[in-house]
Design a protein around this nucleic acid. Sequence first.
DNA 1: GCCAACGTTGGC
DNA 2: GCCAACGTTGGC
Length: 157
Amino acid sequence: MNYWLMKSEPTCFSIDTLQSLPKKTTAWDGVRNYQARNMMKDQMQRGDLAFFYHSNCPVPGIVGIMEVSSQKAYPDPTQFDPSNDHYDPKAHPDKPIWWLVDLTFKRKFTSVISLAALKNHPQLSDLFILRRGNRLSITPITEPQWHIILSMADHPL
DNA sequence: GCCAACGTTGGC
DNA sequence: GCCAACGTTGGC
């Protein structure tokens, strides 16, 4: 199994919204970056775990954990919907461009593991999201990184 | 295939 | 709201 970090702007879609959904599950739609798409399409497997990261908000950071819950990736339906913000006129149902997986809520931390806290941790200097100028909305997390970050959860600075 | 211009991301 | 950094686009 693999570990991931997935960003979302909480004003757009937050971990609280995910938790409130009927099956606490969402299709991670709207990703329009090829690197991020490829990770969902080619690498993610059911049972993989992902940190939920809130970006572009007062305290950016990791707020909880989700699990990949679809058996495999499938076409993002919003690419075919002209009324959707993420409509892609180049995509056709017989030749989709954008793929996604489903994610299910696992837990929410009692406090945010802030970006500042991640930056301050001496063993997390290689964290993908901390690399200069990184903007990828989905990044891999190594197993050691996963456990270090988990150990920071529920222990505010 | 180069690269300038443009749009987007996201921390601050 | 600013702006650095990056991805994408499109002319050539």
